[in-house]
Write a protein that binds this DNA or RNA. Structure first.
Lengths: 337, 337
DNA sequence: TTAAATAATGTTACCGATAACCTCAAGTTA
DNA sequence: TAACTTGAGGTTATCGGTAACATTATTTAA
């Protein structure tokens, strides 16, 4: 690989002069600058970010750790983060923890080892606490996305999960539903807890008794093992007339299971959920959802992170919390009773 | 940040000894090793990958450049690549060119500057040639995914696009369709060209005349501007009874446009396409597709890449080309005439 | 006219790690 | 016992950049 020393030699100047031309610093005569530029072109020079970061003690790299790369919610978050990062001259790298605490730990180690300037984390849940403590201990600024972690204060971008759950339940009751079940993510995830709370409050306001049997708390990304959902359905007899799903993946699983049992949606059971399905919700404009502003999660979170990085020395700035509104998109997955 | 020098000082040894403990090289007494390990724990030491890569002249990083992060085909490719990379001790970073030649160029520069050991590229199309030449010039091993680029020999993993197109057309003719339109990606993309070829061949074998008006060549990821599809529909009168889409995104756009015009799928027009929709094809098992083995694209491509990296010195090894079969999944988006 | 300022460039040290070579004591072998 | 290994560790140079300081001419101000 070509280095500034190769350039320097061929241009008959010192390496420092080449560095100055590259970074537009110091005073350089036009003649020298042009000569150096020409040699750089000629030799196809590409700067070495690692060497640069090593001496500057900063990498201009941000890292985005998401929990499910196949979920359109998170890929849209990624788009937003990418745009914001580019705008401020940072590069953005991605990682995918697959909702696994272990993979998350691996990524945290990688992030520290690559000396990213800051991190956007959608934590796998409350068990992410030690990982976040590791980041904090090493003074790596981070912003949490979508989920809070008890015991760790930080900047965070959240959706209004409680309000969203209330809206979904209210929508169902307005269509005459009185028996509304909930399939939700793990109670170790803050957004799942808030969705459960919103669900319970809305039931109470509608004078519907809460029944623990109608609630299934599972993983947000169950993919392979559907037996839990199966036995949940078995437990609920008679079946509910409507189901609220804590996210889009669960909604898909629920609908798949219902179909497998020969139950039609929405004719026999209505289904609503959090998070849109990206472009696929258009194919058969079907699911009624709380469409969180995924792009904004990424964009605003990245801006907060960059602010935090650049104010590094200023200690004691209060943590910021952005709560994005929960907007409902009504489609056709709810029947009227 | 803690360095090996801090460890060395506190443990009363030289930095080199610490390095040996970290890498398990050379001869170290158990006593020293334990002492160093203890100090490393105590100080929360994290190795600096950049410093390491700088001296070793290799980063153990692979880069995967895809063209659409919101397309389940590519995110599944990413999963496969990630698993293969991890298996061989490489880290994998992602980039997303959004089907834009300019963004692709930016990423190529970043990749060179970060000194990745190798690159997996799903090129935006034939115009990617100069970018690939840049990689080649800098001796960065790369593997092409999903698309070939004329003028650039390299390792490559492809799907059997021609055969896939034939299967789709044959499926439609077997259901009685005789008027089959094609919406396809840009002719500057090899897979799009092959899909067109397969489509034409299949028409001929079925004694159906080819009509250029029935073919729309657009971008694989049109997202915002649908007027092209609109005017294509306007041109085709009477409308076809079936449409083949060159990928899943186009299929979604077509179906959306049809719905907007009050045309029902598949009752009035049948739609089939390349690439599955990931989990969302399950929600309403609807689209009949050629389901390419996305995970294998990533997994096998990464293995080829690593082979190439590790045989770096051996020149003249022939380029390898893997063509994965095109398997059709028949669902409900085709009507029988 | 001469000291001080400025422009343009070079030198040196360092970022954090590792390869290659060096040292020295203890154990082996003939 | 002299010569040779081996074990365990240290020293130095280097990777590709940049900050800080040094060095020249060349201007400029007094």
């Amino acid at each position: 690989m070509v280095t500034i020393y190769d350039i320097a030699a061929k241009a008959g100047v010192s390496a420092m002069t080449v560095s100055r031309v590259i970074n537009n610093t110091g005073k350089i005569s036009d003649k020298t600058r042009n000569k150096v530029r020409r040699v750089m072109e000629e030799l196809n020079y590409v700067p070495n970010h690692m060497a640069r970061s090593l001496v500057l003690q900063q990498s201009n790299v941000l890292f985005l750790l998401i929990t499910d790369i196949t979920n359109p919610f998170y890929t849209t978050v990624a788009r937003g983060a990418e745009d914001a990062a580019k705008k401020h001259g940072y590069r953005l790298l991605f990682g995918n923890s697959d909702e696994s605490v272990e993979k998350e730990k691996d990524y945290i180690d990688t992030i520290l080892a690559t000396r990213a300037d800051g991190v956007l984390v959608a934590p796998t849940g409350d068990l992410s606490l030690p990982h976040l403590e590791t980041l904090r201990r090493h003074r790596v600024p981070f912003v949490l996305l979508d989920r809070e972690v008890p015991g760790m204060d930080s900047d965070v971008v959240l959706g209004d999960s409680k309000e969203g759950a209330r809206k979904l339940v209210d929508h169902l009751t307005s269509r005459g539903h009185r028996r509304i079940a909930l399939i939700n993510g793990s109670p170790l995830i803050s957004s799942a807890r808030l969705r459960l709370e919103g669900y319970r409050e809305a039931l109470k306001l509608n004078d519907i008794p809460f029944d623990q049997n109608d609630v299934l708390e599972t993983a947000f990304e169950p993919r392979s093992d559907l037996s839990e959902i199966e036995s949940w359905f078995d437990r609920m007899s008679p079946p509910p007339t409507a189901i609220v799903a804590g996210n889009n993946v669960l909604a898909v699983e629920v609908i798949r299971t219902l179909h497998a049992r020969g139950i039609r949606v929405p004719e026999q059971v209505s289904v609503v959920c959090f998070d849109d399905l990206g472009p696929y919700s258009e194919i058969d404009p079907f699911l009624t959802v709380i469409a969180q502003q995924a792009y904004q999660f990424g964009y605003l979170g990245t801006q907060m992170l960059i602010d935090r990085i650049q104010e590094r020395d200023v200690t004691g700035l209060p943590w910021k919390k952005i709560v994005l509104p929960a907007d409902m998109i009504v489609r056709r997955s709810v029947s009227t009773i």
